[in-house]
């Protein structure tokens, strides 16, 4: 059975979940441990990853953009929108690409996405600051993305295991 209403409802639930996660992760700023702008756990990426596999590329992208817009609205901080959008969209594109490679597990896709997210954020910072000095952070951020990507990949794998016999939209 295919229901449009169900898709919309599911999309909304996932968006809300992603939003909740990104708000939650602001309560535990990783930057306290690693004082670099833009270091995040990227918990919301779990939802993106999940949506990508369960619903497909287009719905996942829609959820991502909705999440970015709403998060910046909630935070009242529109300058952050460019960062999250550039990071998020680049991460999405990379994950869509990596997903095509059937031999990659959810870990590889997640790590690739996390790395792409940071590259996108650095690019956004270069644009808004008009300065390439922030590229100096890229090596560290990429290193951190190996850890955060593995972590989100691990959580996502638990999620997929739990959802194995649940059919959401098909």
């Amino acid at each position: 059975m295919h229901s449009k209403t169900k898709d919309i409802a599911l999309g909304a639930v996932l968006t809300a979940l992603a939003l909740g996660l990104s708000v939650m992760e602001n309560l535990f700023p990783v930057t306290a441990a690693i004082p670099l702008p833009g270091v995040k756990l990227g918990l919301a990426n779990i939802v993106t990853l999940f949506a990508l596999y369960e619903l497909g590329a287009l719905p996942a992208l829609t959820i991502l953009i909705a999440r970015c817009l709403l998060a910046s609205l909630f935070a009242g901080n529109f300058s952050a929108l460019l960062y999250s959008l550039m990071g998020g969209v680049l991460a999405m594109l990379v994950m869509i690409g990596l997903k095509q490679c059937r031999r990659l597990s959810v870990f590889g896709v997640s790590i690739g996405g996390a790395a792409a997210h940071n590259v996108g954020q650095i690019a956004a910072a270069c644009i808004t600051l008009g300065d390439t000095a922030v590229i100096g952070y890229l090596p560290v951020l990429l290193g951190v993305s190996l850890i955060t990507g593995t972590l989100t990949g691990f959580i996502a794998s638990l999620l997929f295991r739990a959802m194995k016999n649940v059919h959401l939209s098909h």
Binding site: Y53, E54, R103, L104, V106, F107, G108, F160, R161, H167
Partner: peptide
């Protein structure tokens, strides 16, 4: 069938 991801790390990861 929904696309079910590999859940264990592989060499390609």
């Amino acid at each position: 069938s929904k696309s079910s991801p590999k859940l264990r790390p592989t060499f390609f990861d």
